[in-house]
Amino acid sequence: MSSSNDGRIRIAVASGKGGTGKTTVSCNLAKSIDSERVTLVDCDVEEPNVHLFFKEKNGEKLAVTNTIPDIDKSLCKKCSKCSEFCQFGALISIKGDILLNKNLCHSCGGCSIVCPHDAITTKARKIGDIEIRESKNLKLVSGRLAIGSTMSPAVITSVKERSRNDKVVIFDSPPGTSCNAVESMLDADFVLLVTDCSKFGLYDIKLSVDLVRNLEKPFAILINRYGLGDYEIDEYCKQENIDVIMRIPDDIKVARAYSKGILQVDYDEGMKAEFRKAYHKIIDIVSNPIDDSLKDLVNS
């Protein structure tokens, strides 16, 4: 955690359980920030949906590639050194014939290095796409994993790379605690965990809290659809000394607007101000990090 970010901030909006409202929150948050140009990065490359809420027209499209081995059969002496080396089972040797499973290749490049006959070179393989849409106040970076590919974290890394030089960045993370979610949070200064008042939500948010604590990221919780369910989440946050940065009341009007691609901040000035307040609270937490042990002292 750095106490001075030169006004730069990277916020990951994540969750345990899916469907708690990460995308809703990240979009509303991005749109509520009037003071700066915001970069919103859709890291849910298996199911991107941020672009559905913005009218910014189609932008720059880029391919995301990784490298896979290309074996020259005329040079291959069937020694099997490459398949012995591969940690991922992507290369196997059946009676000397080398078989490649492209989807298992993690692009380490090791096979081409260990081949004693220089029979292996590398070639590019498309694993996804990036689209960058821009407007005056917003830059939207969306990533999408190619059908049939499994290399989500690699696509997420490329997507994040497009926001590297931007000042205010919000990452819309994929749900859960898998490699995809971790990759989307790695560069964040702060993680905003979105949950609801359901039992599933509570169970899963505990897993997310465990993850962000392991990653040593400052974080807070936002309770969405507040009032629908129970209040065990409030109890949990109190017990664990976790900041609840905002509670958004459950409201059918929000769902109706959402189904039309309309965000709360588009029609509710009060809610826009609330999101702006949450943003400033986050900036404050990141600029003035407080030790967890000190927090216990302050709260006792």
Binding site: Q87, F88, G89, S93, K95, L104
Partner: peptide, 16 residues
Amino acid sequence: KMPSGAGIKTAEMIAN
């Protein structure tokens, strides 16, 4: 002992 791909490597051994 392999974290992943155990089935493939085992199949390779059996096939050979």
